[in-house]
Design a protein around this nucleic acid. Structure first.
Length: 578
RNA sequence: GCGAUAGUAGUCUAGUGGUAGGACAGGGGCUUCCCAAGCCUCUAACUCGGGUUCGAAUCCCGGCUAUCGCACCA
């Protein structure tokens, strides 16, 4: 068969209804895909497995925010400014360039990224084009935003953006989420949904999409307590880690336990290590092959300046090489701090001390008995101003001036006392740090297809198989009558109904020879096939066939549904039945 | 985005300025059958738009998509 693995996998995906180009009736659009019947089913199963890990097991409730957000959110998050490239087109040769890069390389300016469009255009006028070498001359510099922009409501009064990541919804809901979790750290919140990036030139199939699905968890932790309360679960979990020193030295990944990884400083803290291991377990569960999976630490210049540590789970693709499918970062308090300063809301948690801290402070205490008669209605405001005065700023002779309502008021020593006061501090406001595991569902789904894709030579011919885990396979059980006569078809249909009512996705097929039907199901990854034959009519047994080994066992129909459920949930393996 | 190349049933492919053919897949039947068997039969295509021409799937221009190279990839 022609083509590389990517081509053969995508051909299968199109033909059998996993993924195809969008809106082909009008010509497809690059960077957008449609999930067909089997793909949508498989994607949902991946998402449900993810929910099982993060929502059910970790207890991080899922929320759902709009995909359109008002401009202020993305001004605060830095996307409006940082997610834009200033570009221009050479009027002579038509090439597009990053304006700041050309200006910097032209030697005219050292920090061109800080210049506005007009200044960049002025600088560019004198510079030769890097491609055609003509002096650029008069040119327009425009911002190319990777965010899709839209307007909210009639009259285009309000700018909105399609979210470039799901995370911001969780950050902007922080105060309500904190209350939901009853004001305690740590807590985690998840969201699965579409995000949008207007990529300049998306050309890697499902790998770089303009609309894609993210599954993100934001875990809010105390900045000084990055020991994971459940770290024991993964302390001895071993997996290969490719830290940045190893990348710089050109050595390979080192296998180590998570406890060792934290102890040796390879991974910054227990939280990051915990989610590295959880991610490893998750990816294997959904069908990523462990020998085509690695965890790579970001190099210091690759990492965002605020991130304390950042790792990517990368899946090996035959065509694309190592593809980033999951990012796990300790983002510190960067996001919450940004939203706090832009919104004016606190974005902090009040952490009560185990014991209140008592200390003595020197305070200026107003004498209300003297202030009241003298200042009457203004006395309260003046007393507050006096109390707020720093005792150290009061000159030796005792008099000072406070400003209340724009009026300077002379305060004599008879109006206040300076004395030692005992104060009790119950706790402090803390801005949590954020641990963020962020999963690219589309890339994971593609990687699973590629990793599970097999073309096998058999004694008589060949077969194409997707070795999908049963929990991910779109269809779990196929049911065939050996022949569609003598009541075998009726019995098979009855079995399909029974399996479906047990919650399994079952499919009936009586078309063509039995071998052909097995092949059809192999190709879409259906893990199990049930065949109804003449014996079934006699004694009520059926055969159950395993996709990967092509072996069969015979079992009574009465045990079929439960057996299939146990096989699909992994409580039972097929060779336990043999 | 720029440049090069390409686009024929679901898939692969033949063809060429004058009737678009095959294989596989798919549907219906026959066969009665446990790993793509056989026979009959049916469905189904020239990427889209414009131009040249008596006539265009074929030649020209443009769009779209794909592949490759360049640029881009927070």
């Amino acid at each position: 068969m022609a083509g590389d693995v990517y081509e053969r996998v995508m051909d299968l995906a199109r033909r059998r209804g996993f993924v195809w180009p969008t809106s082909e009736a009008y010509g497809a659009v690059a960077g957008f895909i449609d999930y067909g019947p089997l793909g949508a089913m498989m994607k949902r199963r991946i998402e449900d497995t993810w929910r099982n890990f993060f929502v059910i097991r970790e207890g991080f409730y899922e929320i759902e925010c709009p995909t359109i957000g008002q401009e202020a959110i993305y001004v605060a998050s830095g996307h409006v400014k940082g997610f834009t490239d200033k570009m221009f087109q050479c009027p002579h040769c038509g090439e597009f360039f990053r304006a700041d890069h050309v200006v910097e390389n032209g030697g005219h300016c050292e920090h061109a990224a800080a210049l506005d469009e007009e200044s960049l255009a002025r600088e560019l006028a004198e510079i030769p084009c890097p491609v055609c070498n003509e002096t650029i001359g008069e040119v327009t510099v425009f911002g190319f935003s990777l965010m899709f922009r839209t307007s909210i409501g009639p009259g285009s009064q309000r700018t909105g953006y399609l979210r470039p990541e799901t995370a911001q919804g969780i950050f902007t809901d922080f105060a309500r989420l904190l209350r939901f979790y009853r004001d305690k750290l740590p807590f985690g919140v998840t969201q699965i949904g579409k995000s949008y990036r207007n990529e300049i030139s998306p050309r890697q199939g499902m790998i770089r999409l303009r609309e894609f699905t993210q599954a993100e968890a934001e875990i809010f932790v105390h900045p000084d307590r990055k020991e994971h309360p459940d770290f024991d679960r993964y302390a001895d979990y071993r997996m290969p880690l490719l830290g940045y020193p190893a990348q710089l030295a050109g050595t390979g990944a080192t296998e180590m336990s998570m406890a060792e990884a934290v102890r040796s400083g390879t991974v910054a803290n227990e939280y990051v290590a915990y989610y590295l291991a959880l991610t490893h377990e998750f990816l294997m569960r959904v069908g990523i092959s462990p020998d085509r999976l690695r965890f790579r630490q970001h190099l210091p210049d690759e990492r965002a300046h605020y991130a304390e540590d950042c790792w990517d789970a990368e899946c090996l693709s035959d065509r694309f090489g190592w593809v980033e499918t999951v990012g796990i970062a300790d983002r510190t308090d960067y996001d919450l701090r940004a939203h706090a300063s832009h919104s004016g809301e606190p974005f902090t948690v009040f952490i009560q001390y185990p014991e209140p801290i008592r200390r003595t402070e020197t305070r200026v205490v107003p004498r209300m008995g003297a202030l009241g008669p003298r200042f009457r209605g203004s006395a309260k405001a003046i007393a507050e101003a006096i109390a707020a005065t720093d005792p150290a700023s009061i000159p030796g002779d005792g008099g000072f001036v406070v400003t209340v309502g724009g009026n300077a008021i002379e305060i004599g020593p008879e109006l206040y006392d300076v004395r030692e006061v005992e104060v009790e501090v119950q706790g402090e406001e803390v801005m949590p740090h954020v641990i963020e595991p962020s999963y690219g569902i589309d890339r994971i789904l593609y990687s699973i297809l590629e990793h599970s894709f097999g073309e096998e030579q058999l004694e008589d011919g060949s077969r194409t198989v997707l070795h999908l885990p049963p929990a991910i396979a779109p269809i779990q059980v196929a049911v065939f009558p050996l022949m569609s006569r003598d009541g075998m078809d009726g019995l098979a249909l009855e079995i399909v109904r029974e399996l479906k009512s047990s919650g399994l996705m079952a499919e009936y097929d009586d078309s063509g020879a039995i071998g052909r039907r097995y092949r059809r199901q192999d190709e879409i990854g259906t893990p199990f096939a049930v065949t109804v034959d003449y014996d079934s009519l006699e004694d009520g047994t059926v055969t159950l066939r395993d996709r990967d080994t092509m072996r069969q066992v015979r079992l009574p129909r009465s045990r079929l549904a439960l057996t299939c459920i146990e096989l699909c949930t992994g409580r039972l393996r097929f060779n336990d039945l043999e």
